[in-house]
Design a protein around this nucleic acid. Structure first.
Lengths: 112, 112
DNA sequence: CTAACGTACAACCAAATGGTTGTACAAATT
DNA sequence: AATTTGTACAACCATTTGGTTGTACGTTAG
């Protein structure tokens, strides 16, 4: 089992910030489907290579993708584990909500 | 059952952008636990009332909280449904990953 | 060897973000 | 009626973001 390292606020900020852009979300999708080089990614979007490079860098800092050298290329891979961490973060909110409902229910039961 | 309106890219941007800030995440948590006024929220954070007001506005535009007038106060409530929508978005990424793995598995099976 | 390819990185720019203070006004309190 | 409370909103400012172009450099192809 993978050890859960606690995410700092800044980590979480970077993760959600990285996901708050349509181009970056698309890059995550594509790199989850298959390995792609930065230049291959860049062909898909109506912006400069450097701009795509920056998006990949933002995703890498957020831990949502990893980059590995292969010859002169850099292969980008989406990291499903980081996605799951983000899911867990949202699940915490869900839990907070549910525990509130549970408390309200308990209160109603008492009054019966 | 609630009808699922398709979220635009901008909607999704706003949701994740809103979650990419520790103060705003805290506001979401607090307003999921109980109804709170904007001024009550503002007491908790080391920034001006206006700054907190802006954070609440960002969350409201993202649909993560709703604001309702009560006398001179504005009551803020977290919206669990929007959280679930965000979860579904992350789940789509998860699905993409899983279908890739499934395809790889199928390929291996064929070769046996 | 030379040329083309893929990447890194710096410098620059406009727009957005996240904070501030100040003003205005309705609602509640005294 | 006068004051305080809670909010809205504008103006302002520094920093960050998201794009650009240009330069440099290692790797691959001819």
């Amino acid at each position: 089992m993978v050890v859960q390292i606690e995410l700092t606020d800044d980590d979480v900020n970077r993760i959600f910030r990285a996901l708050a852009d349509a181009t970056r979300r698309d890059i995550v999708r594509r790199t989850l489907v298959a390995e792609v080089s930065v230049s291959q990614l860049a062909e898909s979007y109506d912006m400069s290579f450097a701009a795509v490079q920056k998006h990949v860098a933002a995703l890498e800092e957020a831990g949502l993708v990893t980059k590995e050298p292969r010859g002169r290329e850099r292969i980008v891979r989406g990291d499903p584990e980081r996605i799951r961490q983000a899911q867990r973060l949202l699940d915490q909110f869900e839990q907070i909500w549910r525990s509130r409902i549970d408390r309200l229910d308990a209160l109603l039961d008492e009054k019966e």
